[in-house]
Structures are given as C-alpha cells and as structure tokens.
Amino acid sequence: MSDQSLREAINDLFNRRWDEELPDEKEESLQDMFDNVIENYGWDQVFKAIDNYMRTTCLTSESIVNFANLFWGYTCTNPRKIPEPYRFLGYLYYRVNSKPWDYDCAEVYEGLVFNMLSGEDDYNHNPFTNYDYIPEKDPDIIAEVEKLREENL
C-alpha cells in the first residue's frame, strides 16, 4: 500500500459524522478497516497520517470534536501509545479553547487523556479516579495550547 492509499484510508475513516447512525455491520467494517490499516502500515505510520489529517482538516471546534469522537471510537478498546501525547492533546484542547465541556466532548477528551497519559500503575493523569487532576489545568497541555496560540493557527 502506498502513502496515498494510507491517506485515502484515513480520510475514509475520519471524513464522516461521528454521531451518524450506522448499521452494526458498517460500524464493524470501519473498525476492521482501521485495524487492517494498522496491520498493513504499523501504528507509528498510521498515527502520523492521523495526526496530519487532524492538523490539516480539523480547523474548527466542530470538526475537532467530530474527529476526537471518531478517534476515541476506533481506539478506546485498544488504546495505543503515541509519540508526543501532549502535542496531540494540546491540539485537541486548542481547538475547543480548552473548554471541552462547552462542546459536549469532555468525557471523550478525558478518556483520551487517560488512555494516552496513564499507565497501568499511573493514576496521576486519570481524571476518573484522581479528582485533583484536571486536564485543562495540566501544565504540559497548557504549554502545548499556548504554543499553538502563539503560532496563531
């Protein structure tokens, strides 16, 4: 498979409404497609393509919330570590002005934070059990959001 094929697959997976009612068979086929793309390219290459899609296509709060919900749907049951998780999360928070609750996506964002930052024995970044941890106040997420604001994307 070529890089163009990978970009097309990522576009097919993410260029749809997350809340669209799909038959179970279609949902399963999309998940199978996601899993097959990872099997064919490897997670690192697929994630780079996903990150590129997010940064070039998701330029509004509505589009980033849609993306986050789809990404969560594909990865929530089988989370994978990503390089530079704060960079990725910073972009998600940047596009919703660090206020995911205003866009009805706080639970999805918190799930992504937990999957990307928490390990089996690390509950410091778990907003579901560590009530003192608030992703929007995480200095590393804030630093990434501030970088993006300075770049004025």
Rank of each mutant, 00 (worst) to 15 (best):
M1I: 02
M1C: 09
M1E: 08
S2L: 12
D3K: 12
Q4C: 03
S5P: 01
L6R: 01
R7Y: 07
R7K: 10
E8G: 07
A9R: 14
I10H: 14
N11A: 12
D12L: 08
L13M: 13
F14Y: 14
F14N: 06
F14V: 00
R17L: 13
W18M: 09
D19F: 04
E20Q: 02
D24K: 14
D24Y: 10
D24C: 09
K26L: 14
K26W: 06
S29K: 12
D32F: 10
F34V: 09
D35V: 04
N36M: 04
V37R: 04
I38C: 07
I38R: 10
E39A: 07
N40L: 07
N40Q: 10
N40P: 01
Y41F: 15
G42H: 07
D44K: 11
Q45R: 15
Q45T: 15
I50K: 14
I50Q: 06
N52C: 13
Y53P: 04
Y53D: 04
M54E: 09
M54R: 01
R55P: 03
R55Q: 15
T56C: 08
C58W: 07
C58S: 05
L59S: 09
I64Q: 05
V65I: 15
N66W: 10
N66D: 12
F67T: 02
F67N: 05
A68I: 06
N69R: 15
F71P: 03
G73C: 12
G73S: 15
Y74R: 00
Y74M: 02
T75Y: 15
T75R: 12
C76I: 06
T77D: 15
K81Q: 13
P83I: 09
P83M: 13
Y86L: 00
F88E: 11
F88G: 03
F88P: 01
L89A: 01
G90C: 02
Y91H: 13
L92N: 07
Y93Q: 01
Y94H: 03
R95C: 14
R95I: 03
V96A: 11
V96C: 13
N97M: 04
D104Y: 10
D104W: 03
C105E: 03
A106V: 00
A106E: 04
E107S: 06
V108K: 00
V108T: 07
V108P: 00
V113M: 13
S118M: 10
G119F: 11
D121R: 08
D121Y: 10
D122S: 13
D122T: 08
Y123M: 05
N124W: 08
P127E: 02
T129W: 06
N130M: 05
N130Y: 12
D132L: 05
D132N: 14
Y133T: 00
I134D: 06
I134V: 04
P135M: 14
E136A: 10
E136D: 04
E136H: 07
E136V: 01
D138N: 11
D138R: 08
D138Y: 13
P139M: 09
D140M: 12
D140Y: 12
I141G: 08
I142L: 05
A143G: 02
A143T: 00
A143F: 10
A143C: 08
V145L: 04
K147C: 01
K147V: 02
L148M: 05
R149V: 00
R149E: 06
E150Q: 01
E151Y: 12
